[in-house]
C-alpha cells in the first residue's frame, strides 16, 4: 500500500489520497490520469490492466486500486 501511495503522490502531488474516497467522481483522476496510472501499475506490479478493468469502482480510492492490483496478481 505504501508503494502505491508513493506512485499516486508522485503522479498527483498535493492530493491526500489516504482520505479520498471518490477520486473519479470528484474529478481528481481523469481518463488521462487513469491511463497513465494503469501503465505505471502494469510496469511496477507486472500485471495486465485491460480496458474492462477501467471502471470508476476500481479507481475511486487507494483501497480499490490496491484491491484491483491484488486481484490481477492472483489471476
Amino acid at each position: 500500500m505504501e508503494e502505491l501511495l508513493d506512485i499516486l503522490k508522485d503522479m498527483k502531488p498535493g492530493v491526500q489520497f489516504e482520505n479520498e474516497a471518490n477520486l473519479i467522481d470528484d474529478g481528481i483522476l481523469d481518463s488521462l490520469d487513469v491511463m497513465n496510472l494503469s501503465v505505471i501499475l502494469n510496469d511496477e506490479y507486472d500485471i495486465e490492466i485491460t480496458p474492462l478493468d477501467i471502471i470508476p469502482e476500481n479507481f475511486k480510492s487507494i483501497e480499490s486500486i490496491y484491491a484491483l492490483i491484488t486481484r490481477l496478481q492472483e489471476d
Binding site: V39, I49, T50, P51
Partner: peptide, 19 residues
Amino acid sequence: LRDYVFYSVSLSQPFKKFN
C-alpha cells in the same frame, strides 16, 4: 471514443512497447 479507442490504444501491446 474513450472506452473503445483511447483505452484500446493506450492499453494495447504495441503501445506498451512504445511506453
